[in-house]
Amino acid sequence: MIIEILKLLIIPGIFFLFTLALFYQWLDRRFLARLQNRRGPMHTGSHGTLQPLADFIKLLAKEDIEPEAVDKPVFRGVPILLSTISITALFFIPIWGVKAFVHFEGDLIFMTFLMTLIAILAFLGGWSSTNRFSTIGGLRAAMQTLGYEVPLSLAFIGPAIVAKSLSISKIVEWQASTGIWAIILNPLGFGIAIIALLAELEKVPFDLPEAETELVAGWQTEFSGRKLALLRFAFDLELVLAAGLITSLFLGGPAGPFYNIPWVGVIWFFIKTTIVVLILSNLRGLFARFRIDQMVSGCWKYLVPLAIIQIIFLQLVLG
């Protein structure tokens, strides 16, 4: 019992995820900066590693302004719910071993549900702000969901078909036991999942809901102080979630040589997620932002047919 609680709190629980989230934010910022011939964060901590933590603490200490016109319960609830849901979703990702902290048959479906919930919360956050920029940002977030949700789910189905299970842990277990990573059978699915997750994370080229030059900060415009700190923290957790999901579903999760020995699995997981984060930040530096109509129609025109082709291909191969 005590061990379970310790696991929940420290590793692979909340403390570990918190550190990982802040570290990946730093990695993302630093890597993008180097691609753009800049330096990125560099003063707080060694090479700026503590900068995300400093930002987090600073935002917590800042004045929390709540405009009069906002719908208070929803406005207050969104940041809390967003970070809780992100943490909850992360417990379904196998980090320590091939089994996640929480797992049951069908948790992949639950995971897609949680990810949709995140987008709906973004919409609610924008709507409850009643600010024009927030409202448009929220609407765009909802609109974007229509675009990426279907290809994302279809891409997730691929590994599930391969492993003949709808549980993330089972899929990882199958990859660990057979030694075949799902990416080998799902190269298209991997690409589609990466693109769709970029949209889920609201990063360039799909940062429409918070397009800085168009909508100030989009649906987050009115959030400040503690709420903004929580929101930003939730985004960092989402980044871990996205990288973790890709790792588990396509790259075999903690599987790798000697993964059964304690700590080795975590190290494999860490290496793989780092690579995924680097791919994501590389893509961030590569494109201009799409327009919302281009984004949605592009998703339906290219991503959905490709995802279907991927599934047909799998059916043919596995027969």
Binding site: R34, N37, R39
Partner: peptide
Amino acid sequence: AMERELLRHLVKKPATII
């Protein structure tokens, strides 16, 4: 179109001066 340029800058010294 910019991938090669990006990767080339990864090993280059940053233009920013501290």
